[in-house]
Amino acid sequence: MENKKRIVMDADRIDRSISRIAYEMLEDNKGAEDMIVIAIRTGGILLARRIREKISHIEGVEVPLGILDITLYRDDVIMRGKKPKMGETDIPFSLDDKRVILVDDVIFTGRTIRAAPDALMDFGRPRLIRLAVLVDRGHRELPIQPDYVGEKLPSAFWEEVSVNLSESGGSDEVLIL
């Protein structure tokens, strides 16, 4: 099958979405107090940094940023032979009584993200946990809904949705493959 690459979000749209997410987060939270951003490895890392930059821009405050690897919490980890590659979890501060925003690039079936709150609970007791994603592509299999969404993008189940941010090379774009 031919690789039919469609660019569904360009750099400007992405930037506007990120700004809007940042504003919504600050509005809900009534500022940046006690806010912590935790990126879900690997898709959420660059996005989380961008959101944090925006917040810094708007509020003048650097919120703490952590990285969470949820590989070991997935429900499909014990598969025949193939194990997903593990990455480091880096949360060098306490989560107790904080307002944690989990960040990932795309939400799809919800299975990956479902594991994240479980993982976070092993690090402490946040006051609340919210979820921010850049793209919601539908096809949920579990009752998980993001609190902050960049854009809802309908996609076919068999398509692949890829978020590329320029820090990793190339330009800002969201593609459907």
């Binding site: 032979g81 194990k83 997903p84 990932d104």
Partner: peptide, 13 residues
């Protein structure tokens, strides 16, 4: 979201 099949590593024994 990182699909499980990406970066899969194996100890095939």
């Amino acid at each position: 979201m990182t699909p499980a099949s990406d970066n899969a590593i194996t100890l095939t024994r």
